[in-house]
Design a protein around this nucleic acid. Structure first.
Lengths: 397, 397
DNA sequence: ACAACTTACTTAAGTCAGTAAATTAAGTAA
DNA sequence: TTACTTAATTTACTGACTTAAGTAAGTTGT
């Protein structure tokens, strides 16, 4: 419930401040008069809010306002250099860390070896990564909005707890509090796919879309769902388990214990496993081997099948959520059209009425630091406080 | 975007007013001190807000506050008799209209013959229904919050337009404006399943759940999705097409033109059709005939299959949204356990990790006036302005 | 039974973020 | 150069909150 806990009209200021900041972020440089029109606020209020934002360095004046027969407008724009954030993604044997600015642009990135996934190891290594990034870039801690981390698994965003992660073998780890304690900056935790979705919503193709579906295909398959401008996390952060919808009843065994999950057919490990069954002679052990044999009709057929399965389930999701936009990311984008042609076709074929006819499906180029950048955007999102995003990414204090 | 169009601190009052009104609605009679604790507002503010609500008749004082060693608290409660609303459901050859109070309780209902579904006919008949309900119950127009209508199809809630309805054969009908013109009360339109979901969220099992899934099984199959306390309508009101998710790839032809839709297997018309194929000798033409033969193993098997299909797709939906609660309604609840035992089992079997293990699935008893009651709650919801529900149900002015 | 205490609510004074209207600022046009 | 236009700020006022003090209406102890 949103009850304005113990609040006076200063809430109004916060709301207006956010609204104006977001408008500047989304609609580029604008004059105070333009802000006035877009916000419905009076000129005097705009003056006040803007000078507060300028005092905090978040907004700056720009040259270039053209007169239309009177005093020329002063253009205002977000000063993306005003703050920084660190984002971290945990991987098998290492940790990827990036330093971004307020605009989600990566300024610097580095990798740190990660001997194991024990929480204390993770905390120590993240601490090292943060100090390294700060000294390398000459940024002071005060400049830092916080540290964001995306984790594969179920996260209690509010309390900063990793409720469960198969990948990390974690169960109820209060990683937010541990990091906060060790590093002394605000911590923002979330599921990794959600983090990617937040980045996409703030800085990517979803900037203008308040209903979008983000899916990632890679080691696992996941979805970040944004409806009414807000991320859907569900009762206890368990939403978005797109990889575990049923693709084939009674089908292949999935790691999760169920049978026939989409992930058991179309995730990278599943593709590797299936290709070995299908084409023993090709001697495929890693995803890279698969990419070498895209010409082999058996492999092509396999990827076609996987794309079709993803597309069909995506169509179901589109039928349920009627989004403005679909973004596809993850390591799996390397497969390119081999995977996505059949996906697109299946999406069109199985979506209701015209729901997918003019639905943009964007395949996001993937790089090693994209997950980490998404994590950083969790910390950054505090500055924007996305429309009404409940408590987007609570720090662990 | 939520930008507080042209607003001062009176927004704060509106927000607090809504918060307090909703708290009283959800948590029964409370004293001002209790409201103070729950809202975080100061006592003085509570006094102000409450006296405004009492002036409008929306809240009333109650006896029964027990002293704990000092002045006894004065209990406050919502006065559900303060306002009324009319809700209307269009059916094949008639129209069902109900008059409810603020609490969604049906005070009166009536049916009007509907010779055809032409918009002008519908408007005329609804006008007749409203006047009849008002005179019969001795309610004056000023007492009426508005008229709500739930329509099967895609509705542009904001503009009050029925974008498309197969059932009514409507296309871009500005029914909201037409009704507003003819009847002169605020009109709230929405998809019929959404209307039912709003009723469930406001007055039913979803009162305390801000993430719930409502599905209806009957002539069609639909879903109303509530996440973060808000109804998901999607880009253009097309969300919730649960009946058209794919149950079997390349399966039975669906009325929508696709193949293998859930609705082609588990809607009432589909069940009738399938039973005829399966058991020609039973001479089944209507749903009632089906209900006569629940003992027949072929019919039992059919319903088992339908329930399983619904349950599997419901599991997928649960995997994606992680709701607190599932509510099942619609004419199909008449099938009872014949349909829902297998549904429940399939839901458990196919949902990820523990997402469904402690997930209540409520089968809502169904009556003729339930759809209409849902529609009325669209109009009523204005008074509650549910948490942050964007513009829940815009009138067509 | 009555003062003393406790708890519930209201009134009063101050603060803060808005609005509207007037003023200042900085350009174009004749 | 003066008049006009558009942009932004300043000023005076309003409304909804805050805290703090005051009033209301019970219970408790002697």
């Amino acid at each position: 419930m949103r009850s304005l806990r113990g609040n006076d009209q200063s809430v109004v200021r916060v709301l207006n401040r956010n609204a104006i900041f977001n408008t500047l972020h989304r609609e580029g440089p604008l004059s105070r008069v333009q802000l006035k029109e877009r916000s419905g606020l009076s000129g005097a209020a705009i003056t006040g809010v803007v000078s507060e934002l300028m005092r905090d360095g978040l907004v700056e004046e720009r040259e270039g306002g053209v007169s239309s027969g009177g005093r020329p407008p002063v253009l205002l724009a977000v000063n993306y250099r005003a703050r920084s954030a660190v984002g971290i993604k945990l991987m098998e044997r290492r940790l990827e860390a990036v330093l971004t600015n307020l605009g989600g642009e990566v300024q610097r990135h580095l990798q740190v070896e990660l001997p194991d996934h024990h929480p204390t190891t993770v905390v120590r290594m993240e601490q090292a990564a943060v100090t390294a990034l700060l000294t390398q870039s000459g940024t002071c801690k005060e400049h830092l909005m916080g540290l964001g981390m995306g984790l594969p698994g179920v996260i209690d965003v509010r309390r900063g707890v990793c409720v469960h992660s198969d990948y990390l073998q974690w169960q109820d780890v209060p990683i937010g509090a541990l990091l906060e304690e060790a590093i002394g900056v605000p911590i923002a935790l979330d599921n990794d796919v959600n983090a990617f979705a937040v980045a996409e919503r703030l800085f990517g193709h979803g900037k203008a879309a308040s209903n979008l579906i983000v899916i990632t295909v890679g080691r696992g398959i996941g979805a970040g769902l944004v409806a009414n401008g807000q991320l859907i996390r569900g009762r206890d952060g368990g939403a978005g388990e797109f990889g575990h919808v049923v693709s084939e009843k009674g089908g292949r065994r999935c790691e999760c214990g169920k049978a026939g999950c989409l992930e058991a057919y179309a995730s990278e490990p599943a593709l590797v496993a299936r290709s070995r069954e299908l084409a023993d002679d090709l001697d495929i052990v890693r995803v890279d081997d698969l990419l070498q044999h895209l010409d082999d009709p058996r492999i092509a057929g396999l990827l076609h099948d996987a794309g079709e399965r993803i597309g069909l389930q995506l169509a179901n999701l589109v039928n349920l959520l009627n989004p403005e936009l679909v973004v596809v990311g993850g390591e799996g984008v390397r497969f390119g059209d081999a995977l996505f042609t059949s996906m697109r076709n299946a999406l069109r074929e199985h979506s209701f009425a015209g729901l997918a006819s003019d639905l943009p499906v964007v395949i996001e180029p993937w790089g090693d630091e994209v997950w980490a950048r998404g994590a950083a955007s969790l910390a950054v999102s505090h500055a924007f406080d996305l429309d009404l995003q409940e408590d987007a990414c609570t720090s662990a204090d």
